[in-house]
Design a protein around this nucleic acid. Structure first.
Length: 563
RNA sequence: GCGCUUGUAGCUCAGCUGGAUAGAGCAACGGACUACGAAUCCGUAGGUCGGGAGUUCGAAUCUCUCCAAGCGCGCCA
């Protein structure tokens, strides 16, 4: 909000410098504006003069002088401009500009922080994509939180987002699932004769078996299945089991407030003939060959370290063939961008999927689709690591976590660190609703502001109906300025978060904002005998609350008015 | 052995895409409520940015090389 006009000022100054002959013509690097770590160096600084020193063959400080002398600050954005150190240009923003920024925040209201940068173009975000072989666990939770936040960030920057969930409803894992349920139907326990190799041992398998025998009906998001109740009908068991688990996962996602626009079933790629089509197309393009009774794709031609089997000697396809078919389908549905959010344990699929898409020769860009990988979550309970094993049935489910910790805290914890760093989830700490928990820290800030508004209302002040233009000039204390500076940074933080798929930047921003509010609160009284100061501060806090709500909304976290 | 990711204060982590004196929260110690929510604030202490070399005006950030951890490296998904 301040940064952009500043960049424009510098760019215009460069242009004027060229016109007057003081600077050499040519292309300039993009103007970068940074925030100095030392506040004495101004509100913003620019290093363009040092970057140009070589090209202009002039000392950076002289270039900086030329730029400064050509700056036309007609809107009185700047208090002063200085050259410092080796050639930094330090900008000191006028109080007037910070104060006026508040008026702009009020004007933009709920849309402040958002932008139209994506121009309404279509982007698909695929995430979670858990197979229906068990409830969602804590790892899926991280994927759900990151995927949903990134989707919201993309929406906030003007993209038309489709949230998509892909699941494997065929194949070996599902066969195992069906066999496990069947064994339970027949009263076979894990380890006993007749228990399937690699069977799923969790309690939920037993539950599905008894529901099946009781001929229950299951309604999942995309399926309506009535149990046959016949323990010998493996196909009926498979369909019932998948639907049952889909229903459970739907409920988990709903509890987490994560919704999907499209569910794609792997089986549909076969039934629509897409898998066969892809295999044929790859063969026709000369990228496949037969060896050892199998059909191979020459992925080494596209950067892989070895070729991969497409069709096994038993005639079935390996998982990555439907994956390619699925992504071709995404492309043909018109998504110029696709973001796949998944666990980093699947990172080896990236090369294969992209290789397959390149081999199809459809003109799909090499870097398409984009991938966003998150590292593993380790769960600590009682100071010990909880081992996650789906087959043994011992793991923390997402549902347990939400029930114990609360949806907002779980979401916040999952996104507060950059996705590619491992996450230690300390259950005991997260359950403890203490101030160590950063989500309480910032929700408290919002609740505290709302509480001030209530008090103000009791004294006849309506924080929502203050004429900002009349009072903002009273806002000039260091604490007030600190808040104003942070507020106007929101659009930049949102666009950077979205561009890099880094929701944690926004959580960090919110923690900073909460901190500067709490500092202000402890230092200054909002409601006082001085009505002009009171009105000005209420006006400032009204904008602050707005920014909390806008930013928390982009993260899918609530902004409670009391706690 | 190869690939991806990570390594920053005692612990958990930031560090705005190469900028100026590396930051925050916990934990430790010392302070602040007879007024708007003390779920808060202020102060003190705490560092070889894993080690080494290189690139340049300038490196936690880029390159190379070691060391350590996690995850991959199936005719599993």
């Amino acid at each position: 909000m301040i940064r952009k006009p500043l960049i424009l000022l510098v760019e215009k100054a460069l242009g004027k410098g060229v016109n007057s002959g003081a600077l050499l013509a040519g292309t300039f690097p993009p103007v970068m504006i940074g925030v100095p770590s030392n506040p004495e160096h101004g509100d913003y600084s620019c290093n363009i003069a040092m970057q140009l020193a070589k090209k202009e063959s002039a000392p950076p400080r002289r270039i900086a002088e030329i730029i400064i002398s050509n700056i036309d600050d007609s809107d009185y954005l700047l208090e002063k401009v200085e050259i410092a150190g080796p050639g930094f240009i330090n900008f000191y923003i006028s109080q007037d500009a910070w104060q006026k920024a508040l008026l702009e925040i009020e004007r933009q209201g709920g849309s402040f922080g958002r932008s139209g940068a994506g121009e309404g173009k279509k982007v698909q975000v695929e995430f979670v994509s858990a197979n229906p072989t068990g409830p969602l666990h804590i790892g899926h939770g991280r994927g759900a939180a990151i995927g949903d936040s990134v989707s919201r960030l993309l929406e906030a920057t003007g993209w038309d987002v489709t949230r998509e969930f892909y699941y494997n409803d065929a194949g070996q894992q599902i066969a195992n699932l069906a066999l496990s349920v069947q064994a339970r139907c027949k009263g076979v326990e894990p380890g006993e004769p007749g228990w399937p190799v690699d069977g799923y041992q969790g309690e939920y398998i037993k539950d599905i078996a008894s529901s099946y025998l009781a001929k229950e009906v299951v309604d999942a998001s995309d399926q309506h299945i009535a149990a046959a109740g016949d323990p010998d009908d493996l196909e009926a068991i498979r369909r019932f089991s998948v639907a049952s688990l889909r229903r459970e996962q739907d409920a988990d996602l709903k509890a987490f407030d994560v919704r999907f626009d499209v569910f794609t079933l792997e089986s549909s790629l076969y039934s629509r003939g897409l898998v066969e089509y892809v295999v044929r197309a790859l063969a026709e393009n000369g990228h496949s060959y037969e060896a050892d009774g199998a059909l191979w794709l020459r992925t080494t031609a596209f950067g892989d370290d070895k070729d991969r089997v497409m069709r096994k000697s038993d005639g079935s396809y390996t998982y990555f063939v439907p994956d390619i078919a699925y992504h071709l389908d995404k492309w043909e549905r018109g998504f110029i961008r696709v973001v796949n959010e998944q666990g980093s344990d699947h990172h080896s699929t990236i090369t294969r999927v992209r290789a397959g898409l390149q081999a199809l020769g459809k003109g799909i860009p090499e870097g398409w689709p984009e991938y966003l990988l998150h590292q593993m979550v380790t769960v600590m309970r009682g100071g010990e690591e909880v081992k996650i094993s789906k087959r043994a049935g011992s793991y923390v489910t997402l549902r347990d976590l939400i029930d114990e910790v609360g949806r907002d805290a779980v979401r916040f914890f999952f996104i507060m660190r950059k996705p590619d760093a491992q996450l230690v989830f300390d259950l005991d700490l997260a359950k403890e609703q203490s101030p160590e928990n950063p989500v309480y820290y910032l929700q408290y800030a919002h609740a505290r502001i709302c509480s001030i508004f209530e008090n103000a209302a009791g004294k006849g002040f309506d924080a929502g109906r203050i004429q900002g233009a009349d009072v903002v000039s009273s806002l000039e204390s260091p604490e007030e300025l600190e808040i104003m500076k942070l507020l106007s940074a929101l659009p930049h933080v949102v666009s950077e978060s979205a561009a890099n798929f880094e929701p944690h930047r926004l959580t960090g921003y919110l923690t900073d904002l909460a901190g500067s509010f709490h500092r202000f609160y402890n230092k200054s009284r909002v409601i006082s005998d001085n009505s002009r100061t009171t009105l000005a501060r209420l006006y400032l806090l009204e904008r602050t609350a707005q920014v909390f709500r806008n930013a928390l909304d982009i993260l899918g976290i609530s902004a409670p008015e009391r706690m």
